[in-house]
Structure formats: C-alpha cells, structure tokens
Design a protein around this nucleic acid. Structure first.
Lengths: 341, 341
DNA sequence: ATCTCCTGTGTAAGCGCTTACATTAGCCAT
DNA sequence: ATGGCTAATGTAAGCGCTTACACAGGAGAT
C-alpha cells in the first residue's frame, strides 16, 4: 500500500528511484560510495517527494542524535546570548542542532536539566562554569556524555574547558584602578553562590588589593542581583557610606551601567567624583556616558570554540585540549584619577 | 546475553522485574493501568538500573519528541533572547525542551532551518514575524507541523500569532513626537528586507506623518544594520544633511542608543538640539543618558504566551486564538521640544 | 581463458520502544 | 456449575532508519 499524502519514508524514495533503501541511505550519508547516476536519480526523487529522514528512526539506528545541549544560567544575559549564538552557528556548520535549557544559576535545577537533556539523547553538552555538585559530574561520567565547561577555567579537575581566567582578569583591571591612584575602592558583584565567575572576579580584585596593602576589611562589597536596578541601588548604598569610595569595581557591565545611571541621576560626576569599571564589554558598555572602562571578553569566540570541541569529541576525540582565551583591558571614559581633595 | 555495563533497556527492566516489556512501558506511561504491586516492583528495578527510555526509540514508536523548535533571527538581540528565555521556561513546565536555530534575517536560511528542525521531529515551531515565502508556509502545512508566529501580527493569513501591532505602535510614538512640535523628522531603521517588524514600524511612522501633512519625500530615512555602530553612522549621515532633523525616530533601541552615543561624541545636545526616540524598551534604553523615550514591548510575556499556545496545540487544540499584546509609550528624557531658533 | 580484486548494490537483521490484540484469571449473576 | 465481564498482563508487530554481509559484474593480472 502506497502511503500517499503521508510523510514520505525511505521506502517511498527507494521504490520510486528503483533502488534499495540501502542505496538511498548511502546517497544521503556517504554519497561518494554511490555511482553518480544513481545519486542523481535518488536526489531527484528526494526533492520531488520532499523526503527528510525520520529523526527517531535515525537516532535509534545510529545511536546518535546530532543534537548538542547547552545549559546556561539564562539567555536573558547578553554574554550568554551572544556566546550561544556563536555556539549554535558553529554547530550548524556540521549539521548539529542545539537544545537549550536554563538553570537560573541553581545547581540543583541544572542537574535536573542535564537529566532531561540526557534523556533527549544529546551527543554532547555545554555547561557554564566549573563549580557544581560532584553528583552532577558523576552522572555525566556514568552516562558517558561528552561535555565542555565554558566561561571559566578549571585547572584542578582536568575537565575540558573553553574559557578565560576571571580571577586574573579582575586582578588586572584592579591593578589599573590602583595605578590611577585610587585607594578607597568598593565593589559590586553579582551573587557568588553558584556562580564561580562572579566569585573569581571578586577574589581576583581582592587579591590584587591585598597585594597593594589594602585589607579586605577596608573594601565595601555589595552583592546583588544581576540587573541594572540592583546595580543602581548598590551604588546608592556604597555612596551612602561614611567614607565614600573613589572607585567602584563592578563584577559585570550590567551592574556598572546601573551604578553609572544612578550616579547621573544623583548628579555625582563619573569619573570626576567616582570612577566605575565594568567587566565583559557588552554593547551596554559603549552606550553609557561616559563609556565604561571594562574587560573585553571574547564571548563569541568562546562559544564557537566550545562548539568545535564538542564537534570533535563527537567524532571520537576523547578529551581535547582545553582552550584559554585572553581578555583585554579596554580603557574608556569611566575610569580616571580620584578627586584631588 | 545480558548486556552488562551497557545502557539498560526496557528488556533488562522487564526481565529483572519478572514482567513483560509492555507492562514496564505502561508503568512508566500509564501507571494507573497497572497493579500497585507490579508498579512498585518495576519502579524499584528502574531505579536500581538507572533506566531511562531511549529517546530515539520512543520518538520512533510514538511519533512525538517533546521537543519544540524556535527559529529566530539571532539570539544576539536582547528582545529575542529575553522572549526566548521566557518561552523556554514555560515549555519546561510541561516537560518540553527547546531546540533553537537562527536565520540571520534570511528567509532562505529560515526555510533551511525549518527543514532541519522538522527533520529533528519537533512537535511545534516558533517563528518570528509573518512575512516569508509561500513555499515556507506550504512546507509547514504539508508536514502538519503546528507553528505560531510571534513579534508581529498577521491579520490576513489567519495564522496563529502572538504579537503586537508594530505599525500602530510606531504610529503612536510618532504622534507623540509631532505633539512635541517637531516637523523635520528623520528615521533610522533596521533593514526591512525579510524583517516585517522593521517594515511595519517605518510604515506606521510614515503613515502618521502623512496624516499630519508631512510627505514621505520630506522624511530622511536611513536603513542600516542592527548595531550600535550602524546607528551611530546613520546619525552622522542624517545630521550632515543640509536641513538637519529636529527629531529622529529609530526603529529600535539599539539604533537609538547608537545615535545617542554619536550625538554625545559630537557634542550635539539631546534632546536640546535633536530628539531621539527608540522602540522595544530593552535595558539599554535606561542605560543611556538621557534615557530613551521608547515603546515598551512585553517580550517576556509574548514568549511565554507563545509557549502556552504551542503546548495547547500539541495536545490537540487545532488552531488556538491568536494573542495581541498592547504596547506602551514610555516617556523618558530623549524626547523634548525642538530647538526654538 | 581463468582467477582475483574492486566497486556498486541489494538483502535483511536489528536498534528499543509502544500498542493493538490476545490471553488469562477472577468475579458476579444466573 | 456455567457463562459473561472486567481487569491485568503478555505477545508480537511495527515505527523508519543503518549497516554487516552477500552478491554480481567488470577490470586487470596471470
């Protein structure tokens, strides 16, 4: 019985092209093993019918889905959105599609998502950061799912990662702040719980300050949500202190932009009265006035590199080398010398 | 032969639990149809083995994947990233996962992606905008894939959509610009080709201006890429004209922020010398100085609503009602009266 | 002319589930 | 006791692909 008006199957193609299903399959997957004439004929029928292989069947037969998963804290954050876009584009060049899920910075939720994606048979997984419960890692190992960590580096564990040294970069920009002559320095950071990037950045800054003889107890640190508004109120809080800082190091550009906006609203001159620096160099950093001095992170390149690694692992490369990207300090207008008085 | 140390299959569970595979399957999918004692025994074995159904096999047998796809122009755009995040969160509440792909505003590429996702057996599809080649729609129909259009409305075709009236909203903000007394008005828009949102916004503005007696030929329109830099150069171009506009209506906040930044750099006062308005109300709109007067669009609610519709369609609802969201004008600092001279 | 070897193609056995249908057992009404 | 139901479970036929293996035919070596 012909299955007219149904989704065509490989059998339909084989019948109409006058070949076996094996040949059709080969035409699609290993065209070089098939005579040109046959190939052309098959292609013609495929087009005519609008045939596309059934996914479930293919997955079942090959034990491969050509789907890679990514679990990120949230897409509603330019750095991940941008990296993910590049990640997806790179996967697409190899015919691999992207399944995304979000954890909202919750390790428990992340494990849950990993379970779901594993259930969907992903060929590999992109995970953000290095810190997670051992349980999560053991699940990944048991299932034998290749994964790469991104946005952080992970020297201890030996897991494959594609990232940059948040701590060193933070230390670096802090160094620059010191060079400008600042001594009263405050910090605004995103929640560090479940976010090793934020934690590393704070650690990097503190370490640099300690080396310069500034004790941790002398540094005001406000930890808050990852939003403009939170950055704004953190700024208010810091400037309400008895001894105002002359520079505020922010854990990311969103917080920095929020702080900057609040400064403007309160008529506090940046960088005249207080300097503000960010981290990430997202678009936002160039839209503010003054523009943000910040740390440039190659988010797109990271996403793309992570995809390439996963693609390689899928083809057998057991444990490709990790990749560490350099970051770059970009000097713009929001950092200058402290006020003279 | 026992397949020790392999991924356990339903057969393993059946054997160890002393029941048939059918019973195991029922325990997992329709537990109420199975005796409690049996159910318990099976569950025990499932846990012990860490059994999880093979995705491909399940998809093949049921012809369902619990995967929904989304094809958006790019994730590297806050409006889509934000909407997509909400979309994914809502899908997740029903155990559905999200496959994403991007079209880069290219209709041909979009069809290609649709083909790929269809090949992945998605249960439904989220598409951005209404305009696409008939070929694309006919493919969707042939395959019987439920889909919803978002970010636009689509009155003619009767396709299910979740969006807002770009044209009316643009007309609305233009009206407000006129109210402030502006007569020399220019526009910066993203490329309209393959982007009906951009086209609608331009059309809405032009229509409103026409109604006020301002001819299209008197309106400078610059069409450019969707970036800060492009917005900046478009601004330069407009301000280099013999008769400078007193107000610039931008098709989105990114372009508006780009223009605003360039104004600042050139020492052109906004809104003193020229007013600038945006569209979308993304975070960026509040990070600039002055903040952008713009049109607020409920991106998250749209994403979430689209997910709910798709979820309903998956459960049989043939063609749920479309949803049209209201937009809201938000007055901030970048729009004021034209200069007196 | 015969034997090998290759190349291109066909045959058919799975891959691991779901589900229509068959079977069995227990219950109640007669 | 018998028949008819119902509820719980089992049997086995797919679902649509891939791929190991078998096979045929032609080219080249002998």
């Amino acid at each position: 019985m012909k299955n007219a008006s149904q989704t065509p199957t490989i059998d339909d193609v084989a019948r109409l092209a006058g070949v076996s299903t094996a040949t059709v399959s080969r035409c699609l997957n290993e065209p070089e093993k098939v005579l040109e004439a046959t190939r052309l004929k098959v292609r013609e029928v495929v087009n005519e019918l609008g045939y596309a292989p059934n996914f479930g069947a293919q997955a079942l037969a090959t034990n491969r889905t050509n789907i890679v998963g990514a679990i990120i804290p949230t897409m509603d954050n330019a750095i991940f959105a941008r990296g993910l876009q590049a990640f997806q584009e790179t996967l697409a060049t190899d015919g691999v599609t992207l399944l995304v899920s979000s954890s909202n910075y919750k390790p428990a939720s992340e494990l849950e998502q990993i379970r779901v994606l594993a259930g969907r048979g992903v060929d590999g997984l992109l995970l953000i950061g290095r810190e997670r419960p051992p349980k999560t890692y053991s699940f990944l190992r048991e299932r034998g799912i290749p994964f790469v960590l991104a946005w952080s580096i992970d020297r201890q564990s030996g897991n494959t990662h594609v990232g940059f040294d948040n701590q060193a970069a933070a230390s670096n920009i802090t160094e620059k702040v010191l060079e400008f002559g600042h001594r009263r320095i405050a910090m605004i950071s995103a929640e560090r719980e479940g976010n090793d990037r934020a934690a590393d950045r704070v650690a990097g800054a503190f370490q640099c300050l300690a080396a310069a003889g500034i004790a941790a107890s002398d540094i005001d640190l406000v930890e808050c949500a990852y939003t403009l508004d939170a950055g704004a109120s953190a700024f208010s809080q810091l400037m309400g202190a008895s001894k105002r800082p002359t520079a505020i190091i922010c854990g990311n550009d969103v917080l920095a932009a929020g702080a900057l906006g609040e400064a403007l609203r309160r008529g506090i001159d940046v960088p005249g009265e207080v300097s503000i620096v960010g981290f990430d160099d997202i678009d936002l950093a160039r839209a503010t006035a003054p523009q943000l001095t910040t740390v440039h992170v190659p988010h797109r390149r990271m996403g793309s590199a992570a995809a390439k690694l996963l693609l390689a692992m899928r083809k057998g490369a057991a444990k490709p080398r990790s990749i560490v990207f350099d970051t770059e300090l970009v000097m713009r207008g929001s950092l200058d010398r402290p006020p003279a008085d």
